[in-house]
Design a protein around this nucleic acid. Structure first.
Lengths: 218, 218
DNA sequence: TTAATAATTTAGTCTTAACTAACAAAATTT
DNA sequence: AAATTTTGTTAGTTAAGACTAAATTATTAA
């Protein structure tokens, strides 16, 4: 099945909304909002994707991805994350720069390219944000997530990804000096305002609870 | 200046036709033929490119690229050839597979990506087909073609193409074990009969002058 | 220099994927 | 249960960029 960049973007957005909400469905308006496209336009595209048996819904009903639609979306996620890994590991892009470029690269059509890239990167399991890279066979499971806010005082943990991946947040993280796989120790919890003091790379910083809740760790 | 994939393809085609013919101009029909698009459609796009000051022509006249159009085209060629080099050198694609994928990759918009890629590949000067890679500054000159017969003794060179592509000659080349981009050293020139001894892949063979004159190198 | 041929342009159509405005159905309030 | 609000759909428009057919200009041959 050969899809346009556009159709691929719809599938990816659907996948994102469905997986994020862990709800197995989403709605026209939500999708329109996410893509920044009018609901009317989205409605038109959904009709098309339905005739291609990639999404599944009836008039005024909720949207689901078909098996095939889901499979294609998973492969797009795989491509996106492999490219992010390439940009980060091999080309020295920073953490917050990889997404935008990978957004373009993921649409390149060549199975061989992805297989070779995967091998070149030595079959990575996580992208630079710590997200799991689906396998070639389409296996994709989301590991249970834990935030920095849940780690007991005194314990160590490792940064693997962030919840809010806005540029502003990512830049703040970078400015703090926190990098992917930074080893972090919880020095103290301030019960007064729920902030916490953490230590990494030999320095201590104080962060708010809101910040801690945005940082996923292992 | 932000161009669509389409506009970029037109500029690249124009550049190809103009540079190949070494004529500094081309025509609507020639361009249409090359792109596999009807002359009428090409005419429409040319109008658009003219208003963007990327091509230069008047009604019923010959087509030229403007300085800016040429500069953009050169950068596309640069991107294309850097990606081909990446696919060949790093991912292990064969030389006849790289073009199709590079055709897609060249449209990725990110100056940083190209700079980083160039550095990662250690600033290659030639792509896997032996073609020159334009510099970041847009310098692009086609070097005069050189045959194996012109390489001084002791020097290294790389096979890029052949002059005589008869089956007999190609079979002989293959039998010798010479492949595209084989790294060759000129061991010795026998002045008696102008034959030369070359070394590649750790083995030495003797070839006639006639043979050497049929092999282009870089 | 006129006729024939080739090259180029114009005019009008099609498809895709966006849009707005108006309408219809579903969900929520009162 | 009726009114209101939210959500989803339809209809009609627009912009690219392709197309064909027809018209125009250039070039070549007679």
């Amino acid at each position: 099945m050969d899809l346009s960049k556009n159709e691929e973007d719809y599938l990816k957005a659907l996948f994102y909304l469905i997986v994020e909400s862990e709800n197995d469905k989403t709605s026209t308006n939500q999708l329109a909002e996410y893509l920044g496209i009018s609901p009317a336009s989205v409605n038109g595209m959904l009709k098309k994707l339905r005739t291609k048996k990639l999404v599944d819904y009836q008039k005024y009903g909720k949207l689901h991805l078909t098996e095939q639609g889901r499979a294609i979306a998973v492969q797009l996620v795989r491509k996106h994350r492999l490219w992010e890994t390439f940009l980060y590991d091999k080309l020295g892009f920073s953490w917050d720069e990889v997404h935008e470029v990978a957004e373009q690269l993921e649409h390149i059509q060549s199975e061989k390219l992805i297989r070779k890239l995967d091998a070149f990167l030595e079959h990575p399991s996580n992208d630079p944000h710590g997200a799991v890279i689906p396998t070639e066979e389409g296996e994709y499971r989301i590991p249970p997530k834990k935030t920095l806010a849940e780690v007991p005082a005194g314990d160590f943990c490792k940064l693997v990804s962030v919840k809010d991946s806005s540029v502003a947040f990512l830049q703040y993280v970078t400015k703090l000096g926190l990098a992917l796989s930074s080893r972090i120790r919880i020095v103290e919890r301030i019960s007064f305002d729920d902030s916490l003091i953490i230590e990494f790379d030999g320095k201590q910083v104080q962060i708010t609870r809101k910040f801690a809740e945005n940082v996923f760790v292992v």
